[in-house]
Write a protein that binds this DNA or RNA. Structure first.
Lengths: 212, 212
DNA sequence: CCCCCCTCTACCTATTTAGGTAGTATTAAT
DNA sequence: ATTAATACTACCTAAATAGGTAGAGGGGGG
């Protein structure tokens, strides 16, 4: 029996979810609240398997609710159920501890399946949400490979990497079997291209913009 | 009709996939190769909707194959189909441009569904893979908020931040209304605590470990 | 009350970096 | 064949940084 707790401010939806869950073999809705605060008070007693949460709530917002819930029960599976598809909310929710993210138009059968999946170590996501999540990885890379590293030559990137690893000019020179003067030469060009005037600035920019 | 190209070195599996895809209404396997190189040569002509790729291939590895394929057809939906569940491979594949990641034990019906999902802007993933992906976000946060920033005093973090912003010791001193000697004093302590010996190393460590 | 930690300042020396000028060699493109 | 871009080396000066030593003042806890 999968024990589910629901937090959803819309009475109609909340009641609908409770009826759906309780009405399905193997599922039980052991709590349904309109606010995070109310849920958090009894969370430890309830010990649910899955927490189904709305994000756009009055009072404490859903993201903070997730964090607090995770603080009480670190292994709780939290599913976000929402109308929002904004990237920030998705990532905030995932970072806060959600293990899945469903849009509200998800059909009941899929919702029940998602709840079960969550208890089995899965991460149910609506397909468009999943795409946004994986896009994150590609964007991370895109900015790294095209973004701003463009004007740096391969050799310059190599040398800059050495600095990011924490090596001195001399160490970089030795590892590349070139003169320290050559390293200095490259850094002059790197600094010009990145518009910086010190090692630390260059390292910070290199890491932040994913140049390396 | 969804046009699929398969790359898989195991003849049995490859033939099985081709038969499955061709044998299903609405799907067509317009190419099946045992190596990335062969697929890449004809990719532009084939113009498939989905590329189903193995990762552990002889010759060019799957990750590079994904990158090259994306270079030819940037909007191609690439699904990884593999036995590997190592984190690095998953993330490398996603960064390279895969839009989904399926383990080989995925049943045929799920596989076909995943192919369709990919063409509709989804990101089909086996449930355990999805969990690993979302775990990434949570770990990212955990190490950033708790990780190692502990042993630095508030003042030291403040000063280190200045360095990460790209400021010189003097600039940091001025902005905090303290002497440059004080800044140097703090950096000596910061370096000891972080076990580094230069600005760049400190900045790199600070950013990577999320100290700032 | 005393000790420890944090914060602040100073001086010394050796090393490293920043920025400028100047020149050679190789390769790819015009 | 000339140009542009890249990679390499050298020498110069001024500035910044690393590491050591030394000491003052404040606040919290034993």
């Amino acid at each position: 029996m999968i024990k589910v707790v629901v937090v959803e401010d819309n009475d109609t939806i909340r009641d609908g979810l409770k009826i759906l869950i309780d009405g399905t073999e193997g599922y039980s809705c052991i709590g349904a609240y309109s606010k995070c605060e109310a849920m958090l008070k009894v969370l430890e007693k309830l010990q649910p398997d899955v927490l189904l949460m709305d994000i756009g709530l009055p009072g404490m917002n859903g993201i903070d609710g997730i964090k607090e819930a995770k603080a009480v029960l670190p292994d709780l599976n939290i599913l976000v159920l929402t109308v929002y598809e904004e990237n920030d909310l998705i990532f905030d929710a995932l970072c806060a501890g959600a293990c899945g993210y469903l849009v509200k138009k998800t059909p009941p059968s899929k919702l029940l399946e998602a709840i079960k999946e969550a208890t089995q170590g899965g991460a149910p996501m609506s397909s468009h949400i999943a795409r946004k999540v994986i896009d994150f990885f590609q964007h991370k890379n895109r900015s790294a490979s095209k973004g701003a590293n463009n004007n740096l030559t391969p050799r310059e990137r190599e040398i800059l990497s050495g600095l990011v690893e924490g090596n001195s000019f001399k160490a970089i020179a030795d590892s590349l079997f070139i003169s320290i003067e050559t390293v200095r030469f490259h850094f002059r060009n790197i600094y010009k291209k990145l518009h910086v005037h010190s090692q630390s600035e260059a390292v910070a920019k290199a890491i932040k913009e994913g140049l390396i």
